[in-house]
């Protein structure tokens, strides 16, 4: 029996009149990779924004290790051990890569020198150690994605929420990134939102599917691939007859 580390129960969120997240519930188990998929606008990123406190939820509850975290601010949630990356990578453009990582290490470091000592280690994990003095603004897409991951890792999270880390990468780069994520799985719990099916089917232990803000399926990658509702959501209403 897997140990439940994060429980999302019946969360709702609407913007204006639009229901972006509608009564979504799911659990995240310790040490797993949970994939979240769904068509454009299904509300995947919104779920991340709700878990990490960037938007307040309208109703429902989010519980992390027996503690309610809905209503907390993003920085508090990060301190508890949940860190996210952003779909559009957000490097600090005016800071060097080393300082980008340093800033991420600082909130959990007792002293600035402790944080500084950690920077090289993180840079090596995401293969940016040769770019330490480059400014955040001057990175390639791959490097930005790596830095985004590196910053999240620097906060030493228990749960890592990865928002489309593969977008814009070449197939070879994707393979490298997948290897990296599998490596991370050894010590962390990972929730990953992804568009690229090959990736998500490959690395996820479990998958949930969102469509129009609702959860329409949950299961093993194999089950999801054969699920009619999922195929319908992706290919449109007419697809069912042919499937």
């Amino acid at each position: 029996m897997a140990e439940k580390i994060l429980a999302i129960e019946n969360i709702c969120k609407s913007f204006g009149g639009l229901l972006a997240t509608n009564d979504v519930s799911f659990n995240v188990n310790k040490g797993e990779i949970l994939g979240i998929i769904g068509p454009n606008g299904a509300g995947k990123s919104t779920v991340f924004n709700l878990i990490t406190g960037f938007y307040p939820i309208d109703s429902g509850s989010i519980t992390y290790k027996d503690q309610r975290i809905d209503g907390l601010t993003p920085d508090k949630i990060c301190h508890l051990g949940i860190t996210r990356t952003f779909q559009v990578a957000k490097p600090f453009p005016g800071l060097t890569i080393a300082d980008n990582i340093l800033v991420a290490c600082l909130p959990k470091a007792a002293k600035v020198s402790d944080a500084r000592a950690k920077v090289d280690e993180v840079l090596k994990i995401v293969s940016l150690d040769k770019k330490a003095d480059v400014l955040g603004a001057d990175l390639t897409t791959l490097e930005r994605k790596r830095l985004e991951l590196g910053k999240a890792l620097a906060t030493n999270p228990e749960i890592l929420l990865l928002d489309e880390v593969m977008t814009g990468l070449k197939p070879k780069e994707m393979d490298d990134m997948m290897d990296l994520i599998r490596e991370l799985k050894k010590t962390k719990t990972i929730v990953i939102v992804e568009h690229v099916m090959r990736v998500i089917m490959n690395i996820s232990d479990r998958i949930i599917v969102l469509d129009h803000g609702q959860k329409i399926a949950e299961g093993l990658p194999k089950e999801i691939a054969e699920n009619n509702a999922v195929i319908e959501a992706y290919l449109g209403r007419g697809a069912k007859k042919d499937a």
Binding site: D75, T83, F86, F92, P93, G94, V103, A104, K108, K151
Partner: peptide, 16 residues
């Protein structure tokens, strides 16, 4: 500096 560069990214890293 982090807040100046990107407020949301700073918050996500645990900076109040």
């Amino acid at each position: 500096e982090a807040i100046r560069e990107d407020q949301d990214a700073a918050a996500a890293l645990g900076i109040s």
